[in-house]
């Protein structure tokens, strides 16, 4: 790891200023991803701005939404009574990610900002446009079993690794960020981006902006939601495919639906067309199967990840069945 300067920010403004003054500085919160990447020389910021002293750990209910501070720990959110009661989907997704120790360290903001786990991104001996723009995409014709099937480009087929973000995008969350010009809100779906010709950019956050909180609007999904994650071992592994499913069922008819997928795209992948196909229909396996087919439209497989085209819809159906209480 390179040597770097270390600074503790006492206010969000100070952190933003520090980022503005040094384009090679990075914010550190839990460090679970950044320290790992720095050890492997994938990232090498020359300055770390520690924001652990900032008062951003609170989870509170306000005006029809729940606000979660950017520094709230993953484990804190997962075990929070308010979250478990109002957004069990989020709690479930958080507990599906990483390990208990990592969840005790990782912040909500850091989880949103985490980088892809693509093998080629992680190994500086291999080409990767995200790490070294112009070096090529190692995964495109390489070992791409873990890679994206939606929204890829010739430049990058990496996936976003978060579980939490899949729940957040399904729950219509908003990210509140601070920058030199003040605060702004970014709808969760617009926060992360597709790789296009700039795979080095994971998201739409500016270099000198930082996340303050995530807001989740109140909803009627708490009774019928489910996060299902399929992975290569029973725990502590990244998703092959994961699905966040949330339903508002009136009697037997679906009034509202939210669906998002993980492990399939460079960003948390919201399935709005499939949601539409669920609304007004009875909560049956058949309905779910139809929605799942719609969900997979436009998916494109690579040499080693064609299974996701089949696994994806199956997991959607299973997640919906669980959400609807059919299992």
């Amino acid at each position: 790891m390179i040597q770097f300067q270390y600074e503790r920010a006492s206010t969000a403004q100070a952190a933003v200023n520090a980022l503005t003054n040094n384009s090679n500085a990075k914010i550190i919160a839990g460090g679970t991803n950044l320290v790992d990447l720095m050890k492997r020389n994938v990232m090498a910021p020359n300055k770390l701005i520690d924001i652990n002293a900032l008062p951003l750990r609170e989870i509170r209910q306000q005006d029809g939404k729940i606000s979660i501070g950017a520094m709230a720990l993953n484990s804190q959110v997962a075990d929070d009574k308010l979250i478990m009661e109002k957004h069990p989907l989020l709690s479930q997704a958080l507990n599906a990610g990483a390990s208990a120790q990592i969840r005790n360290m990782a912040s909500v903001g850091g989880n949103i900002m985490q980088r892809t786990r693509c093998h080629y991104f992680y190994d500086t001996a291999l080409p990767c446009n995200k790490r070294e723009p112009g070096s090529g995409c190692g995964a495109l014709e390489g070992m791409n079993r873990m890679h994206a099937v939606f929204g890829t480009s010739e430049q990058c087929i990496a996936v976003h690794p978060s579980d939490m973000c899949i729940a957040l995008v399904a729950l219509d969350a908003t990210v509140l960020v601070a920058g030199p010009k003040g605060e702004r809100r970014i709808p969760f779906e617009e926060f992360h981006r597709l790789p296009g010709n700039q795979p080095e950019k994971d998201n739409t956050l500016q270099n000198n902006e930082m996340i303050l909180s995530v807001e989740i609007p109140d909803n009627a999904f708490s009774k019928n939601s489910h996060y299902m994650k399929i992975r290569d071992r029973a725990s502590y592994a990244f998703a092959l495919v994961s699905v966040a499913a949330a339903l508002n069922i009136d009697g037997k008819v679906i009034k509202e639906a939210r669906l998002a997928m993980g492990g399939v795209a460079h960003k948390p992948w919201r399935l709005k067309e499939a949601e539409k196909a669920l609304v007004g229909k009875p909560a049956t396996e058949e309905t779910f199967r139809q929605a799942a087919e719609i969900a997979m439209q436009g998916a494109k497989a690579y040499k080693h990840n064609a299974f996701k085209l089949k696994l994806g819809p199956n997991v959607i159906v299973e997640a919906l069945k669980n959400a609807a209480g059919l299992v």
Binding site: I28, G31, T32, V35, S75, Q101, M105
Partner: peptide
């Protein structure tokens, strides 16, 4: 492992279990 992937380095910080391999001492 040194990368937060095995748990062998688990310690308690302020009573919580964390991975010491991903914890900077300055923090």
């Amino acid at each position: 492992c040194d990368y937060g992937q095995c748990g062998a380095c688990t310690v308690h910080v302020n009573g919580q279990r964390v991975l010491s391999c991903l914890s900077l001492v300055v923090m």
